[in-house]
């Protein structure tokens, strides 16, 4: 593969976003998406710590200690940006004003259940805005590598990790392909990175149909 898996996934996910959309990007792979959108993409990025209109990372002299994203990294604000408070930020999220949320996950089930915040047997200490976003956003795109570092599939028949939400994912993008959740079933709609259908089958822990 000429490009590492995470970059390939982010580049493909960027193609799902169209000008005018309001988009929330999670930590990890989704954070790599803005460089594929480019300047003047017309996509409005919302960060749940209360800014609509996130711009590119600041140059060193532009760093403002009062201006961060939800990953607590310094960002800039674009012309036309709006600041608000946390209650309004999540009113916007729950109220259906976010067109697309892109986030990473530990597991996704064939019916679109998402587990992305806790590992069984460990203390449950951080959920952040994940539950609000996957329920409130009109479309949820999961970006993740197809398997764990131990070679376990992340797309599964049923999640074994604590759930973030049920039946929430619309699209799952891995380095091998794009899986859509349609009426509670998975459909492989696209192959990526030179993968064949059998490669996706081998790396996926749930049945899916193929509609390439």
């Amino acid at each position: 593969m000429g490009e590492d898996a995470r970059t390939l996934i982010a580049r493909r996910a960027a193609q799902e976003l169209v000008p005018g959309q309001v988009v929330n990007l999670g930590v990890g792979i989704p954070n790599l998406i803005p460089k594929f959108l480019g300047a003047g993409s017309g996509v409005h990025i919302q960060t749940e710590n209360s800014l609509l209109g996130v711009g590119p990372p600041p140059r060193p002299h532009e760093v403002d200690e009062d201006l961060i994203d939800a990953a607590k990294q310094p960002v800039t604000a674009l012309a036309g940006a709006a600041y608000f408070d946390s209650a309004e930020s999540f009113a916007m999220i729950r109220g259906g004003r976010i067109d697309v949320a892109v986030l990473g996950a530990l597991q996704v089930s064939e019916r679109g259940d998402i587990a992305n915040w806790a590992v069984p047997g460990r203390n449950i200490l951080g959920v952040g805005g994940a539950m609000d976003l996957v329920v409130g956003a009109r479309k949820v795109i999961v970006t993740m590598t197809a398997q764990t570092t131990a070679g376990e599939p992340k797309v599964v028949s049923g999640c074994t990790y604590p759930l973030t939400a049920t039946a929430a994912a619309g699209l799952v993008i891995t380095e091998l392909g794009v899986l859509a959740v349609r009426e509670g079933r998975l459909v492989l709609t696209e192959l990526l990175g030179g993968a064949a259908v059998k490669d996706v089958r081998r790396a996926t822990g749930a049945p899916f149909s193929v509609d390439l």
Binding site: D85, N123, I124, V127
Partner: peptide, 25 residues
């Protein structure tokens, strides 16, 4: 926080971030 929770010295109540904000509001 994890260490204190594990040791039973701290009770942690976790809320979705938007629920936390709305509960305060």
């Amino acid at each position: 926080v994890a260490a204190a929770a594990q040791a039973g010295e701290l009770e942690v109540v976790l809320l979705p971030q938007g629920t936390l904000a709305e509960a305060l509001r």
